[in-house]
């Protein structure tokens, strides 16, 4: 599906971040950022430490309310026609017509439950005292809640809940198998080694059956073999399973190996947005990453922030 659409030039995005600005007091963490993530793509968001990548994630998943900007999310490709009408209204989403959501207006849990955007965390956040399987069952809270008729049906063991439960178990088993943790299903999550915890967190996010999976540095702390396995898992999720992926990552083997499309952030601004090959050779990106001398940067990168800094230094002299 993704490949057919790739050939057509005008692709409508799944996620569309427009003019996103996030201020913490006097600190401008994100400055007028716009980028799109397309259906079926693996989109990477990279940048040096402190560039504002995780802040972007927190805005998309509702953990922060952005100062300015619009984050549109559409399950169907033609839904963006209605985004201006939806923005003008006071509503958060247009679920009856076209499954279009304005994420900046929604509370965090609704973004996961209704808009179907799942995420993982930079510092793994598993339910450590619960077993691996329980972690995956908690992720299916919303459908199970409906199946249990908001607990009342489940309390008396109605058939509807039993069906819902066995369906949830099937989904959990599927992802356990995918991340290779079936053997450890009944062990507490906190007992798993680090790499397994990373993969469990991805499996848990996938159990919410998301349309977009946001991964915050999934390869951090993994060894070479583990990050190769991660690549495989992410390719499966993005290409075979059909869940689009938005990825923050420092590990360039992962980023360059699997991304369709990379956006580069530096000091809260987007400095590049292109395919992996173009990003690899982009002088601005190289400068931002390697931290070359200020004069060279000024030549390479004509950004106002840097210019100002250089100018003020010059004035002092």
């Amino acid at each position: 599906m993704a490949t057919t659409r790739k050939t057509t030039m005008t692709r409508t995005p799944l996620l569309s971040v427009q003019h996103l600005t996030m201020r913490f007091g006097g600190l401008l963490a994100i400055d007028n950022l716009s980028f799109d993530a397309y259906k079926g793509d693996i989109t990477a968001l990279i940048g040096p430490n402190g560039a504002g990548k995780t802040t972007v994630f927190n805005c998309i998943t509702g953990f922060y309310k952005p100062t300015e900007g619009r984050i549109g999310f559409a399950h169907e490709t033609d839904a963006y026609d209605k985004i201006d009408a939806l923005t003008a209204s006071a509503n958060r989403s247009d679920i009856h017509g076209s499954a279009l959501y304005l994420l900046e207006r929604m509370p965090d849990f609704e973004i996961s439950r209704d808009a179907k955007v799942a995420r993982t965390f930079q510092n793994i956040r598993l339910f450590g005292g619960m077993t691996v399987l329980e972690n995956l069952m908690v992720a299916q809270h919303a459908p199970l809640m409906t199946a249990s008729s908001f607990t009342f049906g489940g309390l008396f063991g109605l058939k509807k809940y039993q069906d819902g439960h066995s369906h949830a178990m099937e989904l959990a088993k599927f992802w356990l198998n995918k991340v290779g943790l079936t053997e450890r299903a009944d062990d507490p999550a906190a007992d798993l080694p680090y790499g397994d915890q990373r993969r469990l967190e991805i499996a848990r996010a996938m159990c919410t059956e998301p349309k977009l999976l946001c991964l915050d540095e999934p390869a951090a702390g993994l060894n070479g073999k583990e990050s190769a396995e991660l690549n495989e898992l992410l390719l499966f999720i993005g290409k075979e399973h059909g869940t689009s992926v938005l990825l923050i990552e420092h590990d360039m083997n992962v980023v360059m190996g699997i991304s369709d499309h990379i956006a580069v952030l530096d000091y809260g601004k987007k400095i590049a947005d292109a395919s992996p090959e173009e990003i690899r050779n982009d002088p601005k990106v190289i400068a931002a990453y390697l931290g070359v001398d200020e004069d060279e940067v000024e030549e390479a990168v004509k950004t106002p922030v840097k210019k100002k800094a250089a100018k003020s230094k010059g004035a002092k002299k």
Binding site: T61, F63, D108, F109, E110, S112, R113, D114, A118, R119, F121, R125, L126, F127, G128, G129, M130, E134, M137, V138, A139, Q140, H141, A142, L144, M145, S148, T151, G154, L155, Y161, R204, A205, T208
Partner: peptide, 21 residues
């Protein structure tokens, strides 16, 4: 039931709960 499991998940990590809907 999902409600009780959500209670325990809440005890473990509230932020992760919110990220799971």
């Amino acid at each position: 039931l999902p409600l009780g499991r959500a209670w325990e998940a809440l005890r473990e990590d509230e932020i992760a709960c919110r990220s799971l809907g």
